[in-house]
Design a protein around this nucleic acid. Structure first.
Length: 582
DNA sequence: AGGCAGTACTG
DNA sequence: CAGTAC
DNA sequence: GCCT
C-alpha cells in the first residue's frame, strides 16, 4: 500500500503520543501530514483526509464532546468549522481506521468509516446534553469512567490503542466540566485570589508545608460548586480548609480584603527579587532582606562570602532577566536539534530527548530539559563522560555560555569566565579558593546557552506552531534586574536570550522511571508519589519499589499499571494534581 | 505527633 | 547538616 | 496549615 500524494490531518490534537506514532506510520507509506487544517480549508484542497481521535466519535459516527474537541483543537467555533469541512467535501474518519488500512494493506473507506455531519436527531440530543452536562457530569467524576462505556462491542476489533485514549479523554471531560462555569461564584473568586497570594507568599518565604496547605485550600475552593457564604461553611463542607484558613475566609467575606496580605506585599517583592536569581533560595533571600540589602550590588559588597562559596549566584545575577524569560516550543526544539547534532559526532548510539514542560505540551518553556541514555547501557559513568565531552564541544562552539557546575576538565575551560565575573562584581575574596569543581564526574549538567545569530534567524523563519499544543499558562508579570545591578548583566539586548539547559543522564534500565520524573510536572510527581506511598510503594526517578525491592523501572506504562493507574499522556500531567481522584 | 515526594549536589 | 535545585 |  502506498499513500503517496495522500494528505492527512489529525484532530483535535495532532501531537498526542499515539498520533505521533500514527503520523510516522502514514509517513512511512509515503503520505503527507498536514499540520494546519485551516490552510487546507482556504485552499479548498480535497484530497486531504481528516483523522479524528476515536474518543470523539460516537457509535453512530457523529462527533461528540464538541466542547472539548473545540478546546483541544484550538478552534473558536467547532460548528462553523465542521460546516466548512462539510462544504468542502473533505472526508473525516476515526484515527483507528489507520489500523484497518495497515492490516488489510489497503487504503479504502468502508460503509461506516466516514464521520457523518447531518445528524438530524443526534444534534438535538447532543446539544441538550451539552447544555446540562456540566451539572450531570460532575456527579459522575468519582464513578468508574469505564463502566459507562457501552459501545465497546461495536469496535472491539479496533486496535487497543484507542482504548486508553478513550479513557483519558473521558477523564478530561469530567475535569473540563468542573472547571467551566465556576466563575459565577463571586465570593469564591475573591477567596481563591487571596489564597493564591498567600500560597505564593509562603512559598517565597520557604514555608514549604504551610504553602502546600494554602495551595490545597485554593484547589478545594476552585473545585467547589456553590457560592461560599462563610468561613464556617467552607470549613465544614470542603476539604483542606481548617480553622485558620476558615477564619481568614470569614475576614475576606466581611471586609472584602485580607488585612496583612497587602501589608506584606512589599516584603514579598523584596524576597522575590533575590529568589528569582539562580542559586538563591528563601534562606539567603530572607537573610539579605534582614540585612536590609535591596540589590545584588549591595549584597556583593557586604556579603561577598556568599558569592565566593557559591559562584553560580554570579551567573544567576548576570542572566537574571534572560532566565526568567520563557521561550517558544520551536526554540526548545531548535536547541534539541543542536545538541543532537553534536552528540552524533561523539557517540551516535547515545540518544537525547526533551522532557519537562515541552513534553507536557506547553506553548512556552522556561528551560530545556534533556534526558540522555544509550540503548542497553547502564553505566552512568560512561554516559557522564559522553555528556562531558559533548559539553566541551558545545562550549568551544560558543553555544554554551556558562556552566553551573564543574568537573576538572570543564574548570580548565571555564575558570577564566568565573574570574572575570568576580572582577566585574568587584569581589576580591575568591582567590583563596583552589578548586571550583565538585567531582571528577558529574551526571547532571546545568548551563546557560545561546543560539548563534544564524540559528536565531532560521528560528524566526520556522513556521509557527510546528508542534504547538493548547496548554497556555497565565503570564506572571516579570521582575526585572534593577538598574543599580545592571553592571553585571549579560542579558540579551538583541533578542538573543540566554537559556537554561539541563542535561540528565539515565540508565537504560531506568528509562521509564526517569521519563516520568523528568517530564513532571512537579505537582504531578508529588501526587503520583503520594499515591504510590499510600499503596505501599515508593516511586523515584530510579524506579518503582516495594520494601526497597525494585519492581519496575524500564517500562513507563507498567509503572502506571502496577500503581493501578491508567496511563497518562505527558499532556495530561499538567494541572495542579494534588488530592484529585482517590 | 508526625507526615507533607524523593533524590542529588555543594560547602 | 543546611541550602538549593531538579 | 491541614490531615491522620
Amino acid at each position: 500500500m502506498s499513500l503517496k500524494g495522500k494528505f492527512f490531518a489529525f484532530l483535535p490534537n495532532p501531537n498526542t503520543s499515539s498520533n505521533k506514532f500514527f503520523k510516522s506510520i502514514l509517513e512511512k507509506k509515503g503520505a503527507t501530514i498536514v499540520s494546519s487544517i485551516q490552510n487546507c480549508l482556504q485552499s479548498s484542497r480535497k484530497e486531504v483526509v481528516i483523522l479524528i481521535e476515536d474518543s470523539f466519535v460516537d457509535s453512530d459516527m457523529h462527533l461528540t464532546q464538541k466542547d472539548i474537541f473545540q478546546r483541544e483543537a484550538g478552534l473558536n467555533d467547532v460548528d462553523e468549522f465542521l460546516g466548512k469541512i462539510e462544504q468542502s467535501g473533505i472526508q473525516c474518519a476515526k484515527t483507528s481506521c489507520i489500523t484497518k488500512w495497515v492490516q488489510n494493506d489497503k487504503f479504502a473507506f468502508q460503509k461506516d468509516d466516514l464521520i457523518k455531519f447531518q445528524p438530524s436527531i443526534i444534534v438535538i440530543s447532543d446539544n441538550a446534553d451539552d447544555g446540562q452536562s456540566s451539572t450531570d457530569k460532575e456527579s459522575e467524576i468519582s464513578t468508574d469512567v469505564e463502566s459507562e462505556r457501552n459501545d465497546d462491542s461495536n469496535n472491539k476489533d479496533m486496535i487497543q490503542a484507542s482504548k486508553p485514549l478513550k479513557r483519558l479523554l473521558q477523564g478530561d471531560k469530567g475535569r473540563a466540566s468542573l472547571v467551566t462555569d465556576k466563575t459565577k461564584y463571586k465570593n469564591n473568586e475573591l477567596i481563591i485570589g487571596a489564597l493564591k497570594r498567600l500560597t505564593k507568599k509562603y512559598e517565597i518565604e520557604g514555608e514549604k508545608f504551610r504553602a502546600r496547605s494554602y495551595r490545597l485550600a485554593k484547589q478545594s475552593m476552585e473545585n467547589c460548586d456553590f457560592n461560599v457564604r462563610s468561613g464556617e461553611e467552607a470549613h465544614t463542607k470542603l476539604r483542606n480548609i481548617g480553622p485558620s484558613i476558615a477564619k481568614k475566609i470569614q475576614v475576606i467575606l466581611d471586609t472584602g480584603v485580607l488585612p496583612g496580605l497587602n501589608d506584606s506585599v512589599g516584603l514579598e517583592d523584596k524576597l522575590k527579587y533575590f529568589k528569582n536569581c539562580y542559586g538563591i533560595g528563601s534562606e539567603i533571600a530572607k537573610r539579605w532582606n534582614l540585612l536590609n540589602f535591596e540589590s545584588f550590588c549591595v549584597a556583593a559588597k557586604k556579603d561577598p562570602e556568599e558569592f565566593v562559596s557559591d559562584w553560580t549566584i554570579l551567573f544567576g545575577w548576570s542572566y537574571y532577566d534572560d532566565w526568567l524569560c520563557k521561550m517558544s516550543r520551536n526554540e526548545c526544539f531548535t536547541h534539541l536539534k543542536k545538541v543532537q547534532k553534536a552528540l552524533r559526532g561523539i557517540d551516535p548510539e547515545c540518544q537525547v530527548e526533551l522532557q519537562g514542560s515541552y513534553n507536557r505540551g506547553y506553548s512556552k518553556c522556561g528551560d530545556i530539559d534533556l534526558l540522555f541514555f544509550k540503548p542497553f547501557c547502564n553505566d552512568t559513568t560512561e554516559l557522564a563522560k559522553i555528556m562531558e565531552t559533548l559539553c566541551i564541544k558545545l562550549y568551544k562552539d560558543g553555544y554554551i555560555h556558562c556552566f553551573l557546575q564543574l568537573t576538572p576538565n570543564l574548570e580548565k575551560l571555564f575558570l577564566k569566565r568565573i574570574v572575570e565575573r568576580f572582577r566585574t562584581a568587584k569581589i576580591v575574596g575568591y582567590g583563596e579558593r583552589k578548586r571550583w569543581y565538585s567531582s571528577e564526574i558529574i551526571k547532571k549538567f546545568f548551563m546557560g546557552v545561546k543560539l548563534s545569530p544564524r540559528e536565531l534567524e532560521e528560528l524566526k523563519e520556522m513556521k509557527n506552531d510546528e508542534g504547538t499544543l493548547l496548554i497556555e499558562e497565565e503570564e506572571e508579570e516579570e521582575t526585572k534586574l534593577k538598574p543599580i545591578d545592571q553592571y553585571m548583566s549579560l542579558n540579551a539586548k538583541d533578542g538573543n536570550y540566554c537559556r537554561r539547559l539541563d542535561f540528565f543522564c539515565c540508565k537504560w534500565d531506568e528509562l521509564g522511571a526517569g521519563r516520568i520524573h523528568y517530564t513532571g510536572s512537579k505537582e504531578y510527581n508529588r501526587w503520583i508519589r503520594i499515591l504510590a506511598a499510600q499503596k505501599g510503594f515508593k516511586l523515584t526517578q530510579h524506579g518503582l519499589f516495594r520494601n526497597n525491592i525494585l519492581l519496575e523501572s524500564f517500562n513507563e506504562r507498567r509503572i502506571f499499571e502496577l500503581l493501578n493507574l491508567k496511563y497518562a499522556e505527558p499532556e495530561h500531567r499538567n494541572i495542579e494534581w494534588e488530592k484529585k481522584t482517590a
